[in-house]
Each structure stands twice: as structure tokens, then as C-alpha cells.
Design a binder for these strands. Structure first.
Length: 396
DNA sequence: CATCCACAGGAAGGACGGGGGT
DNA sequence: ACCCCCGTCCTTCCTGTGGATG
């Protein structure tokens, strides 16, 4: 009797689709990384001095998103650290999440067991603490700065310069920097000294092609899904969709996982081609909803103005958007931001892919932006009016 | 061929709330 | 208790601009 209960419970908790769903999540680092043997080999060669407790050269890693840069780096460091745990400490920082010099230094210090306040100190003070901490620590530090281009674009190369120079100030070199970027051109605007210091070694990750993606997906699917759930056809489609998207393995894995979730939700134990298509749509909708619902108030209002304005026509100019926006603020009885600000907001909305705002010259009729909606209107609207009756009442 | 539209987008700076140091 | 620094939004003032039009 009790094994029936166990069986039911385990089938409920596990479902029929997934054996280990977590293997498909983006931050999972797999045991094997197919088609990245070259890069692993090269990276290990460069980091080999760690085996002798010596500082390796700084490394610059290039490659588009989902080409395995992060996975390979984490994989190699993890395995090296297993072998030589006393020789070095490694710190991984994603500069998109920790996107200010302050956050980066704070993250480093936290990783070195030094508590720092969330904000309040000057960056200079943090840097002083960082240098002090470095002096106390015996081992080599490998600092991974993922998406380093985001940081450099936002805040210039000052911290990078300071970090690369930390070695000189210490007298004894202790810190190795691994910079990871998907923007090949980003070094153009950097201080040449930073570039040359960071790229003592370089490593390039080419995109995966459809076949390689298929390989990766097949391997991962066999571990993550129960037998017979995923067909070759489904794998092929996910691989093809992701290959079209510059060979992004993360996207491919996302598609596979969400397609599986859809099948599971609908109580089936086979994932179909249809599920993959639904997954594609759902992933995009989730992204849009998340990004729109966390927008500042006036950005939402501008977006609302665009939705209203687009009821009658295909595109709007900045001026038209501003007019509708202003009428909304008037109705709500609140202050409006300037047109200059709205111009920036439009660019921000374009950046996150919710609208497209293209600068056009219309000769006699001036220079403006042509604004149209890029995401699903219903999703955008839902995200705007969620938990905000003031905005909900504007939709009519 | 100069003009002039309807803005673009850079520069500087400020209000404000959160969070320190001393 | 008081001062300082931070990031986030936002303002003010500004110079720049491609091409239809007169």
C-alpha cells in the first residue's frame, strides 16, 4: 500500500516529463562541454601557473552570448580549484548584475569575507579596503569579470585601470583578471594601457552551429528529461531556432526547458513541435512583462501614451508621443517630465526591445524618432496596469 | 542651393532617499 | 547628531542635422 502512495507522490513531485529539470537552467555548469575542447585546453594552459601558486596572465575572452564563455571559465576554475584548493581563490562577478564600480568592489570584498554596506561609502574607500585585504591574503586571486563591456560602457575604464594596477601597488603580483565580453569592438574606447594589460592572453569563442547545438541539446536532454519525452525532431527545432539567433546555446536550452514545462502543465509526457513554438512566444512574453512592470512610473506612462496613439496609426513621432503623454498627466493631475526626458525614455524603451524608435530625417518636416511597438501589445498593457488603478483607468 | 523644420542628444547639475563614517 | 557619498530620475541649456521645400 505505502509504495503506491510513494509512487503517486513521486510521480506528482517529479512529473512525467523531467528527470532533472535544473540541468536546463542557465546557471547550471555541466560536467562536459561538447565542442569547447579547444577553448578549455587553451584556458587551462594559460591558467597552469596556478598549479605552482604563481600568477597567470590576465585573459580576455571574446564570444557572443550563449557560446559557453561563462560555462567554460567556471568549469575550468572549479576543476583547477578542486586540484589546488590552497593555491588560489577565484571570484566570479557578472558586471551586468553588479553594474557599478562600487558594487564590483563590494562583491569582491564580500567574497574575501569582508562585510561592506550596500551603499554609503565612497568608491575610493572601498578600493582602499580592497588593497588592504589583498595584503592580508596569501593566495593568488583570480577575478572573473563577466560582461565587462557593460561596465566599461557605463562607467568608463577607471576601475579596470585601478584593478589592473593593483598588482603594481602591491609589489607582489597576486591578482589575475579574466575579462569576458560579447562585444568584440568594445576595446576601441578603452585606455590602451588597460587593453594591453587585460589582454596578455586572448581567447575567442566562436558561435555554435546548428549541428553542435543539436549535440549539446541531445546530451543535456538525455539527462534532464525522462526517456521518450523528447524526440530528435524537437531537439532539431530548438537547435535551429537558436542557431538562427547567432548560435546561442542558452536560448536553445531555455526553449527546450520551457517546451517541457508546457507539456508537463498540459499533462502530457511527450514534448511536441508545437510546444517549442509556444515556448518561444512564452519566453518573449515573460521577458517583456518582467521588464515593463518594473519600469519607473513615467516610463510606463509614456508607454501607455504610445499604445493609445498607435490605435489609429502605425507610427508616432516623439512630438506626438509627448502630446498624448502630456494629456495623460493632465488627466491624472500630475507633473509631466520634459520632452528631453521623454526622448531618453523612448531610447530606453527601445533598448529593452519593447518599442522600436528609429531616428528619421523628414527634410522640411524635421528630424524625429519613428516610434512603434515591438512587443505584444496585450502583454505590455497588462504589465503597465498591473497593480496600478491610476494607469488602468487611462486605458479607454 | 540655402533654408529651416522638429527634433536628436551632449553637458552640467540638482533633488532625493538610502546608507554609511565619525 | 551631523556630514558625506551613492545611484536614480530628472531639468536646463545647448549645439547639431538630413533633406523637402521655396
Amino acid at each position: 500500500m505505502s509504495d503506491i502512495i510513494d509512487a503517486v507522490l513521486s510521480s506528482l513531485s517529479k512529473g512525467k516529463v523531467f528527470k532533472a529539470r535544473e540541468l536546463l537552467l542557465p546557471d547550471y555548469v555541466p560536467e562536459t562541454l561538447p565542442h569547447r575542447e579547444e577553448q578549455i585546453k587553451k584556458l587551462v594552459e594559460i591558467l597552469a601557473p596556478l598549479a605552482r601558486a604563481e600568477r597567470p596572465n590576465n585573459i580576455f575572452i571574446y564570444g557572443l552570448t550563449g557560446t559557453g564563455k561563462t560555462a567554460v571559465t567556471k568549469f575550468v576554475l572549479k576543476n583547477l580549484h578542486k586540484r589546488f584548493p590552497n593555491n588560489f581563490i577565484y571570484i566570479y562577478i557578472n558586471t551586468r548584475q553588479s553594474d557599478t564600480p562600487y558594487r564590483i568592489l563590494a562583491d569582491i570584498l564580500e567574497n574575501l569575507n569582508s562585510k561592506v554596506p550596500y551603499t554609503g561609502l565612497s568608491t575610493a574607500e572601498l578600493f582602499r579596503r580592497f588593497l588592504k585585504k589583498l595584503n592580508e591574503i596569501k593566495s593568488i586571486i583570480v577575478l572573473v569579470l563577466d560582461e565587462i563591456d557593460v561596465l566599461a560602457k557605463k562607467h568608463g575604464d577607471d576601475i579596470l585601470y585601478r584593478l589592473t594596477r593593483a598588482n603594481n601597488e602591491l609589489g607582489k603580483s597576486k591578482i589575475s583578471i579574466i575579462g569576458i565580453t560579447n562585444d568584440v569592438k568594445f576595446t576601441e574606447n578603452l585606455d590602451p594601457r588597460v587593453v594591453s594589460s587585460l589582454s596578455e592572453e586572448e581567447l575567442v569563442f566562436p558561435p555554435y552551429n546548428a549541428e553542435e547545438l543539436e549535440d549539446i541539446l541531445k546530451q543535456r536532454a538525455s539527462l534532464a528529461f525522462n526517456e521518450g519525452v523528447i524526440s530528435d525532431e524537437v531537439v532539431k527545432l530548438c537547435a535551429a531556432l537558436a542557431a538562427r539567433d547567432h548560435g546561442d546555446a542558452r536560448r536553445a536550452l531555455d526553449l527546450l526547458r520551457v517546451a517541457g514545462e508546457i507539456a508537463e502543465r498540459e499533462g502530457r509526457n511527450v514534448v511536441t513541435i508545437d510546444d517549442v513554438e509556444k515556448a518561444r512566444v512564452e519566453i518573449e512574453k515573460d521577458r517583456v512583462f518582467e521588464v515593463v512592470s518594473t519600469l519607473p512610473f513615467h516610463s510606463k506612462l509614456v508607454l501607455m501614451a504610445i499604445l493609445l496613439g498607435l490605435k489609429g496609426k502605425n507610427t508616432l513621432t516623439t512630438g506626438e508621443v509627448y502630446e498624448i503623454y502630456s494629456s495623460l498627466t493632465k488627466k491624472l493631475g500630475i507633473e509631466s517630465v520634459t520632452q528631453r526626458r521623454v526622448s531618453d525614455i523612448l531610447n530606453e524603451l527601445d533598448m529593452i526591445g519593447v518599442i522600436t524608435a528609429k531616428v528619421v530625417n523628414r527634410g522640411r518636416y524635421g528630424k524625429t524618432k519613428e516610434v512603434s511597438i515591438a512587443a505584444n501589445k496585450d502583454v505590455v498593457l497588462k504589465a503597465i496596469i498591473e497593480k496600478d488603478e491610476r494607469l488602468a483607468s487611462m486605458w479607454s
